[in-house]
């Protein structure tokens, strides 16, 4: 990797002050460090968020839970305060080493099209807390690696509402074990249904509205539509666009059945 300066931030204000220009925030570093080792990035400084007090810890609220941006996947997976569906999702990310370093804030900020967390955020209608203010998940994810974060802004935490039912089904890409297709399904106490899909689309995580409509009337695996159009789906070594589209339907059914 190329040389860079290292800044250890102790507060969000510290961190944002140090960001801007070619500075780069680092949380768990599970995407960033391999990128730097391959000399594919050359930040002037790394601003370490792991010591930011406001971004640590999991806080149970009334009908919701807030996870600090610097909380690791492992901590989420072990928490009794987060919805079981989110804990299970966190437990399925990467391997133990990744889960002990990687953070929810880093994942949501990076918005990898095959990452798991964006589907939970979108699938539960979470609120993304950023250093520039709160953003609804529906407005936050704006395409592959693209988010509502402005220049120099960071994700400080995520608040998930407590669902009546929710489940995440991940079909792993055999090599990376990222989601080839991951589907997060939820139903709120008022009956509102969300179906969020990661891994499949060239536009990143998205809500499958046809399935949501069908399930809103009858929350049953039987009503999940057949595969959506393969247009715009990712095609690569591990699966064609048609295969991914097919898996969306299969994984949605399984998620509903598991709720």
């Amino acid at each position: 990797m190329y040389n860079f300066d290292y800044v250890k931030a102790s507060s969000v204000a510290d961190a944002t002050a140090a960001l801007g220009g070619d500075a780069q925030a680092i949380s768990g570093g599970q995407t960033l460090i391999p990128t730097l080792k391959a000399r594919l990035g050359q930040p002037s400084s790394l601003v370490d968020l792991s010591g930011v007090a406001e971004m640590s810890g999991i806080t149970a609220g009334d009908g919701s839970v807030t996870i600090g941006g610097a909380v690791t996947h492992h901590a989420v997976s072990e928490s009794g305060d987060v919805p079981a569906s989110v804990a299970a999702l966190a437990a399925g990310i990467g391997d133990p080493a990744v889960r002990h370093r990687g953070t929810i804030g880093g994942s949501v900020a990076n918005n990898d099209p095959s990452a798991c967390y964006p589907s939970a955020c979108l699938g539960l209608g979470a609120t993304i807390h950023t250093s520039g203010g709160d953003v609804a998940a529906d407005d936050y994810f704006q395409g592959m690696f693209d988010t509502a974060l402005g220049e120099g802004q960071i994700v400080t935490g995520v608040t998930f509402p407590t669902p009546a039912k929710a489940n995440y089904q991940k079909f792993v890409q055999p090599a990376s074990r990222f989601a080839l297709v991951g589907v997060f399904v939820s139903q709120m106490a008022d009956g509102y249904v969300r179906v969020a899909v990661t891994g499949a689309s060239e536009s990143g995580v998205f809500r499958w509205s046809d399935a949501e409509t069908a399930l809103a009337g009858n929350f049953s695996a039987d009503v999940v539509p057949a595969a959506p159009s393969a247009d715009g789906m990712i095609a690569d070594l591990h699966g064609s666009a048609a295969y991914r589209a097919h898996l969306i339907s299969v994984m949605t059914k399984r998620a509903v059945a598991a709720c």
Partner: peptide
């Protein structure tokens, strides 16, 4: 090489 790392080469 399209499968040039463990992200795409499935060991």
């Amino acid at each position: 090489l399209a499968s040039g790392s463990f992200m795409d080469y499935a060991m």
